[in-house]
Every structure is written in structure tokens, then in C-alpha cells.
Design a protein around this nucleic acid. Structure first.
Lengths: 190, 190
DNA sequence: GCAGAGTGTTAACGATCATGAACGACCTAA
DNA sequence: TTAGGTCGTTCATGATCGTTAACACTCTGC
């Protein structure tokens, strides 16, 4: 019916699913295999030619994986393209802690990405920074002690962290080797 | 059969719907009338004896009224995990491209951080992915060709990028050495 | 006791979905 | 060029959903 079509278009299930699937780098068939449905199902859903059951949609999303709540909460945003050469990145910090920011600190940016280098002895200080947003990162080399709220851990290469920036937090380099981290925080407070 | 039943119980649609409906002070028939479905449908959904279509569920929820995102918002709560050890990070990709995600892909996350490794020959493909949000990152080691829209650059260690994810983009490893990147994207589509 | 109107449940059937198997288009390698 | 692989799409069919129409039960008022 026409009713069905308008309802399907209204939900925009297909558009969203396609975006998520492609972002995950999965073909319809690959996702279908993970999700225990057939590729035809995914094709039809993405084309808004069927109104899937909640269970089927969930199985599909599990394969990506995305939760139903994530799936039904959507949002938009704009910006421009830029590449940055290492030597062009603005250096913010001084001394034992150097920060290189990827991209400018512009309005409308959803986040800021930093390339951080902690020389031996570097410490963001006992003043525990707090600010709106969330932040996370991955340790590339060296070791660092991270304190968030009451929790404290020492992270090494390949380890990661993610927390609400409103929790007080502190980073302190440990060991003899400089520690390099790539991090992101949102919103861009720098 | 039994599979269906476990899936239905797993979703707990019925329980949630009943709670919401009763909170709104509506009988099954009263809600059915508002929602343009029949009382039988609501009865079966609440009893977990059917797996409603997304459209049907939406009509029902509209009658309460509750949005789909609200309805699914009280899904399994994200644990407040902050630190991640390298070996604990879930590996998403396969073959030449491996992705490790820092943290879970849970509702409410502002972004997702990935530790990406491109083996020689790795390529996200000529299908240029597009999705909502923004993304950026820093190359840790190796070299990679990044194409965003009409622009193309080869990035090496320390170089960075940042762009609107709605522009079509592609990553392709170049050179003999594997390429490692730490990236972040928002919103978390993984 | 007995209508009458409310509640939620259930069976049978037509409408719709999910499947399996095709299809053409597009690559890549031989 | 051909063969083999991928990709997304389409169609017929069995499986399942949503509806219609009944059902049993609980009230309330007469």
C-alpha cells in the first residue's frame, strides 16, 4: 500500500542501516552472515521495501554491532576536509608535555584530536582537570599512569582509555621512555 | 520456534510496553485505538507471543506516546569501564585490516576511538564510505593513502586528518610497512 | 440473577515478511 | 576474451505477523 511506503520512508530504516553497514566495512552478504539473516533481507530493508520485525532488525544490528537505542537516536553535522603534515601541526604544550592538535580549533567541530608526547617526568599535575565532554585515547609507546576519579591504572602500548571528562583526571608519565598517546576529546575545549 | 521465543523474551518488548502503557493509564483497547492497531496486536506483543514489525511497534508507541529511541533507551546499561588492556580490545576487522575499538559501542557515547592496523595491500575499497558525523586521526607508523571527496594525500608517521564523514572516503595502505593509525569518529557508528 | 460494558486472551485467516535462488553488473586474474 | 569472484537486486514461496471475531472473566447497576 501507499500507507506502507510512507511509513517506511518516514522511519528511514534503510538509509540508516546502509550508513552503519558501510561504515563497518561490511557487504550485505557479510553482514547477513553475521546477523543470521539473508542478504535479501538486508537489501530489502535498506531499500525501504519491507518493514522488518524488531527481532530481525536487532539481529542485523547485532552484526554491525549497533544497539537498537543507538540506531534510533540519530543526528546531523557539517564540516570540511583537511590533511595535516606532522610538521604543520600546531604545538600547544611546552617542556615535558607536548601536544599537537589535528586541525584547527574551530566552531562546530565535534571533537579535537591530539598527538601527545610525555617526556620522562611529565605530569598534567595534581590539579585534576574537569570539563564537559568525553575523552579517550590509545597509548602508542611508553607507559603512563592515568587517574580518573578514584581509579588509577598504568597503561602501556596498545592500551586504551575512555571516560567522562567531568570526572577529575590526571596523566603522569612513568618509566624511562617518553610516552606517546593519540587522544580525542569532545567537545573541542581547546 | 523455540528460537523465536528466546529471542522475544530476550528483547523484553512485552514487559516494557506493558509498563509504559499502564503508566499512561491506558487499556490495551484504548491504546490500540490511538495507535491504529488492534487490541489483539498489543496483547500478543505484551505476552511476547509475536515479534512485531518496527512500523507496528512505532504506531503503538506513538499512541502512548513514546519514541523508539526512548523505548530502547533502557537497554543494557553501559558499565563504567574506563581502562582497556590491548588484548581485551575487541577486534573488528579481519584479514589485512584490523580494528580495535576502545570501549563498547554503547548508547550515549559521544565518539568511538579505534586502533587500526593496515597490512600491506589493505584497502577499505573503492566503495567510498559515507556516514553521518566527523572523523580524524593520526598516523602512528607506516604510510597510507587517504582519499576524501576529490582530495587525495599520502600520510606518514605523525601526519593527521580530519573531515566530515559524509564526504566519501577511502583508506589504502602504501609501502612495504604495515600502517598503524589511531582514529576517532563521532557519533559512534561502531 | 442478569444484562451491559469493561478487562485481557485466543483461534483462524488474509496480509506481509524472510528466505533461497536466481539475475545482471562490476572487478580481477589468467 | 574468458572464468571466477564479488556486489546489490529481484521474485516465488513458506513462515510469520496483524486483524477479525470470538472467548472467559470481572465489575457495576438494576
Amino acid at each position: 500500500m501507499n500507507d506502507l511506503n510512507t511509513e517506511l520512508r518516514d522511519l528511514r530504516l534503510g538509509e540508516r542501516l546502509r550508513i552503519l553497514r558501510e561504515r563497518a566495512g561490511l557487504s550485505q552478504r557479510a553482514l547477513a552472515k553475521r546477523a543470521n539473516v539473508t542478504n535479501a533481507t538486508i537489501s530489502l530493508v535498506e531499500a525501504d521495501k519491507t518493514n522488518p520485525s524488531v527481532g530481525a532488525l536487532r539481529r542485523i544490528l547485532d552484526g554491525i554491532p549497533v544497539s537498537l537505542s543507538e540506531f534510533f537516536a540519530f543526528e546531523p553535522e557539517p564540516e570540511q576536509v583537511i590533511f595535516y603534515q606532522a610538521e604543520d601541526l600546531p604545538e600547544i604544550g611546552k617542556g615535558k608535555l607536548s601536544l599537537k592538535r589535528v586541525g584547527n580549533s574551530q566552531f562546530g567541530r565535534a571533537m579535537t584530536i591530539l598527538h601527545e608526547r610525555y617526556e620522562p617526568g611529565a605530569d598534567t599535575g595534581r590539579v585534576m582537570y574537569q570539563h564537559e565532554g568525553e575523552e579517550g585515547g590509545v597509548v602508542v609507546s611508553g607507559r603512563i599512569e592515568v587517574t580518573v576519579g578514584e581509579e588509577r591504572r598504568i597503561l602501556g602500548p596498545g592500551d586504551g582509555y575512555y571516560f567522562d571528562s567531568r570526572k577529575p583526571h590526571r596523566f603522569r608519565q612513568v618509566g624511562g621512555e617518553p610516552c606517546v598517546i593519540v587522544s580525542a576529546c569532545t567537545p573541542p575545549t581547546f
